[in-house]
Each structure stands twice: as C-alpha cells, then as structure tokens.
Computed example of a mutant assay.
Amino acid sequence: MKNICFLEGDISRSGGTERVTSIIANELAKRKDEFNILILSICKRNDQLFFYLEPNIKITTVFAQPDYNGKKEFFKIVYKIRKFLKENSVDILIDVDTILDIYGIPATRFNKTKIVSWEHFNFYENLGVKLRDYGRKLAAKYSDVIVTLTKEDKNYFKQNLKIKHNIYTIYNPLILTKKNNDYDLNSKIILSAGRLTYQKGFDMLVEVAKEVLMHNDEWKWIILGEGEDRKKLETQIHKYGLDGKVILKGNVEDIDSFYDKASIFVLTSRFEGFGLVLTEAKTFKLPCISFKCKAGPNEIILNDVNGYLIESFDLNEMAEKIRYLINSELKRKQFSDNALNDTEKFQLDFIKKQWIDLLNNL
C-alpha cells in the first residue's frame, strides 16, 4: 500500500482547486488496498469542508490558526511538512498548485518521498504572486512529475523551462451528470459560474450583458459564485440598469438545478487553468461560449460544433454570438446535440486511471 499525501493551501475552501482535489482524493481513497490517502493543509479557515471527503482520508493542518505568514514562517512550514512526511511514511507528496512547491520540494529533499507538482492555473499566470513562478522553476528541476491540466499548458512549460523529469497532462474530470430534463429550448437563462474575481472577467461579462439584454427583455443572466469583486459588480450592474436582469446568486449547493434550467453557458475569464465549469455545462447539453483565453477552453469547446470560441477579449464578438444563439433555436439545438462530442477524455474513469498509473509508476 502506498501512502499518498495531497499538500493543500486550505482544503476547506470552495474553489475549483479544492473541488478537483476532493474528487481525485476520494477516488483513490476508495481503493483501500492500494492507497492510504492523507491531506496536509497549510491551514483550514472554515470549520466545515465545502466538499465531501471519504471518511478514511486523514486531514491534518500545519497551522491550527488560519492566519500565518508564508514568508516569515517558511522554515517552520518546511520543517512541519518534513516531520509529517516522516511520521506518516509518505511515499508520494502531491503539491496541489505549484506555489506549494516552495515548501514541498525542500521538505522532500534527500528523503524517500517522491513529489508530484500539480499545476492548477497556467504557466503564464502567477496571480500576482512571483513565488508561484519560482515554484514552477523548482518543479522543473526537482519534481519527479509535473502534471498540467491542458496540453496547451504542458507546451508552455516545455517551451520555457528545462524539465528534468516527466511532465504529463491530466484533465480535470467531468463530475456532474445530466439528471433531470432534456435541454430546454424554451429557457431564456444565460448562465455563468466562478469566483467573483478579476480572473473570471465578470466585469467584462456585465459589459456584454448590457449589449445583449437591452434588446432581449425576456432573458436573464445568472452568475453563480462569490468573491471580493461582488460590490464592484453590483455597482456596475446598477449603473447599466441591469438590476434583476444580471443576477449574482452567490455560492449555491444545488448547482446542477441551475445548469438544468439554463439555455446558454458563457465563460468570460481572462485566464484559466482548465475551465471546469465548461465541462460541467456540457454534461447538461448546454451550448457554450468562451474567450480563447490561456488555457483550457480551446481543448473543451469545438468551435461552431458545440459552442463558440471568441478571440480574447472581443466583447463585441461575444455579444454578437450570444445574440445569434438567442435568436436561433436551430443553432442552440445543434450545439446541444453535439455537446458531448470529444468529452471521452474528461470521463472520470479515464482520469482516475491516469492518476493511478502515474502513482504506481513512481
């Protein structure tokens, strides 16, 4: 049996990183004869986990308190991780986000623990944290394996860094299945989802909504998710007279019911690591429209087959394509019928096998 540890920043959060970590960890934890799964979280700001974890997964935190200084307490963090790895005889440490390589790699130097660097954004985005760039350089030199979420991003790593060991692409898995009704051609709801942050481009979404909804009074645009840009977006929505038309729903537990009732799914991100919400929308047969941002949408949407890929960040083209879909039931039906084309590569069983093979071959 192999002891596998996921190193997380905060496993209690509601982000896509934590969601995918929980899925993969749970799938591995079900194979009790092969893997013992542990999660080491730098901190845990919420008492309750947002995503379910199998009861046989052991969760430990580096710091009991939620506030810590990652730079000032660098050596303390590395020491605690190293001690945890030794006490639990960890065979493989998976750093969830390459910024954690600044801790995980020193903690695994000169011991038996193998290290996997799991990129969750893309090579060209550091989210304003230069340490993330440094973590990627460490990963290229010292990690036993780097895992990217897209082939596009794998190429960015190979073009910019000399990778000493192996680099693989493992997509995020499809995790929702169509449960209720067939695609509703009569729906007049546009749906978007993600954290209300600069990355997700909801400020651009509101600009597009202003052009789309002014001539389509029966349509509404629902945004699922919460974040630091809420007040700014509320002000922008009110400024354009879109109150009640563009609706900020916040975090919801029944996200599948929103997918089920929607007509079109739109992604306006400035950048992605993958674009998990697009794959979720496709399982509900939704036509998808997205900017061709780095990295992910190009490998999820088949342009003019089950959605549209829009040049980043052409707001006029985005508005034009949404208006066209609104006015063409035939095109929406065509995209819906083709929604699951090219999705075999995202199926959970396939993704799970890739992870199992990777871990068993280390």
Rank of each mutant, 00 (worst) to 15 (best):
F157A: 08
E34G: 07
I326E: 06
D10V: 06
K141M: 12
T21C: 05
D337N: 15
E211Q: 15
I237E: 02
E320F: 14
A209E: 06
L40T: 02
D229W: 11
Q347M: 10
L205H: 08
L7D: 01
S312L: 14
D97K: 12
E317K: 15
D133L: 11
I300S: 03
F335V: 06
D243T: 11
Y52A: 09
L174Q: 10
Q65K: 15
W355C: 05
I99S: 01
L7E: 02
T235W: 13
G135M: 00
V277N: 04
Q334D: 10
E280A: 06
P106A: 05
Y308H: 14
D91E: 06
F121K: 07
S117A: 10
I223F: 09
K232V: 11
Y171T: 00
N88H: 14
A319M: 13
L330I: 14
L38I: 08
F121I: 12
K2E: 10
S290K: 06
K294R: 14
V206K: 12
D349M: 06
E218Q: 13
E218F: 12
T61V: 10
L176R: 11
K154V: 09
G273T: 04
D33E: 15
F110S: 13
K285R: 11
L127D: 13
R195L: 06
L309K: 11
M214E: 15
F350L: 11
I77E: 00
P297F: 14
I102F: 03
K137G: 01
S187E: 01
I59V: 15
D144V: 12
L185F: 12
L233R: 10
K86A: 12
W118L: 07
K231A: 13
D67H: 14
S117I: 03
F51Q: 02
P173S: 04
Q354E: 10
C293F: 15
N338G: 07
I326N: 06
N338K: 07
L362E: 10
P287W: 15
E253K: 15
G9P: 12
I146E: 02
D33L: 12
L233K: 12
L348C: 04
I163E: 02
K294S: 06
A319T: 10
Q334V: 14
K188L: 07
L174G: 05
N360S: 09
I94W: 03
F6G: 03
N36I: 05
L85R: 03
T148A: 05
N360H: 07
